[in-house]
């Protein structure tokens, strides 16, 4: 039961983009079309899940025994970057169609702070392996949900008659703010 709550909390309550303001860059950058936003969302789910597992192992079996946990940032970035590279190679070989669909979003995820953020949160909350991975899945799904919803809204706003000064990115930022306020409604619903 707790595990289900954990995933739901990741998606709605602790939404990384709209509640914790992590991963804003791809959220704004790759959200002009629902199609590309979906690609980004799926890629992020994929990478965060793997990254959570990998960073958990690195943290608990290398950093903790050596008592050098203060190096977690560097170690995590190293692991995540290598992982993204590896995933890219693997996809290119095994599933060219998925590789084409994800395209440039895969390498972009390397610099997505939501990935690092989830890993750090896992570490700080001292989740065990299963919890870490599930928290990763939930958070990444939250990111995907946010970016797809946002892209849908932006697609519609595109056709609207916005004031000249608000055209384009200002409107996107206002939209993101309002979405964030809407997601605030979930806060406190789930307590872990």
């Amino acid at each position: 039961m707790d595990l289900i709550l954990l995933v739901l909390a990741g998606i709605f309550v602790n939404n990384y983009v709209l509640s914790q303001f992590l991963g804003i860059c791809p959220f704004l950058g790759v959200s002009k079309k629902v199609e590309t936003a979906t690609g980004m969302g799926v890629a992020v789910i994929f990478v965060i899940t793997l990254a959570c597992a990998a960073t958990y192992l690195v943290y608990n079996f290398i950093l903790v025994p050596l008592d050098i946990t203060y190096l977690y940032n560097i170690a995590f970035i190293l692991v995540i970057a290598a992982l993204v590279q590896f995933v890219e190679m693997f996809l290119k070989k095994s599933s060219p169609s998925l590789y084409q669909a994800l395209g440039v979003f895969l390498p972009l995820i390397t610099t997505n702070c939501a990935v690092l953020g989830v890993a750090v949160v896992n570490m700080q909350n001292e989740y065990n392996f299963i919890w870490s991975v599930l928290n990763g899945i939930g958070s990444a799904a939250g990111f995907a949900l946010a970016i797809i919803l946002f892209a849908g809204i932006r697609e519609r706003i595109e056709f609207n008659d916005t004031p000249k000064a608000f055209d384009g990115f200002p409107m996107a930022l206002v939209t993101a703010g309002i979405m964030s306020i809407a997601f605030l409604g979930f806060s406190g619903l789930i307590k872990l």
Binding site: V58, I62, L63, L66, D67, I68, L71, I74, A75, L78, V79
Partner: peptide, 11 residues
């Protein structure tokens, strides 16, 4: 030594 070895080794 530990950080160098561990992070370097990881790399």
């Amino acid at each position: 030594v530990y950080p160098i070895l561990s992070i370097g080794g990881l790399g």
